[in-house]
Nucleic acid binder design. Structure first.
Lengths: 122, 122
DNA sequence: ATAAACCCTGACATCCGTGTGAGGGTCAAA
DNA sequence: TTTGACCCTCACACGGATGTCAGGGTTTAT
């Protein structure tokens, strides 16, 4: 299949498919014209790439284990666990930070509402 | 005071102080040489700017109410509440998304650990 | 043969506060 | 006066996946 078909089949833009190739996540053979030609399995592969991207992994991390998870189950790929654990701890950190900011904002909003109430009361 | 002193007094880099000025958050008069000269109140102003930056507001949002909060209390500035509320809802959205990803990762990590246990058991 | 649809590479833009470096002027103490 | 510390503006880089445009070649159906 050509790049336009793969794009439609996966929802990834043509731009993105070329980018995944550049990052070593996807390969294609070429026609004499230079057109990329994809194996039908590429559809599943692109879906897998996008799944991991949606988990916040970057292309380098995905590249480190993609060849394995395409052949075997995720659980059988040595590389996967440390990447997931690293990502999880990053996310925990982000959630902690956002939660602090959230509390701070909530306090400030509450104070402002209080002031407004008192203003009216006068 | 000059920019280097203000930088030391506030912890903001000289680069950042110039940037705040460009964004309309900070003003300075100039010596004939072109050197910036700051009012002593600038120290408090820069601290205020950095406080709001740390809450995730951008320079444009801060600019929209900074002149007011430097004169009056936060609660008396009309502009503040809607900005805080907008930011809060963004943060809630971010936390929700991160929490989904977090659950997904935790599930996957647990599955992998399960597999490993079974592997050993054999 | 011609038009429409498809594909190619390369490169700039995005977000946005901050780091950094070039190239050059100013101030203060020795 | 010289030296070192300080200041100025301008401009590129970052992060990282994606959008988009330019300029040009290919395929396919009519």
């Amino acid at each position: 299949m050509r790049i336009g078909e793969l794009s439609k089949a996966t929802g990834a833009s043509i731009r993105s498919l070329r980018y995944y190739e550049k990052k070593g996540l996807l390969t294609a053979s070429r026609l004499e014209s230079g057109y990329r030609v994809y194996n039908p399995l590429a559809v599943e592969q692109v879906r897998t790439i996008r799944l991991y991207l949606s988990l916040g992994l970057n292309t380098e991390q995905i590249a480190s284990f993609l060849h394995c998870v395409m052949k075997s189950k995720e659980a059988f790929c040595e590389e996967v666990l440390p990447v997931f654990e690293k990502k999880l701890s990053e996310i925990d950190g982000q959630i902690r930070l956002l939660s602090e900011i959230r509390s701070n904002l909530i306090d400030r909003i509450a104070s402002i509402r209080e002031e407004k109430k008192e203003e009216k009361a006068q």
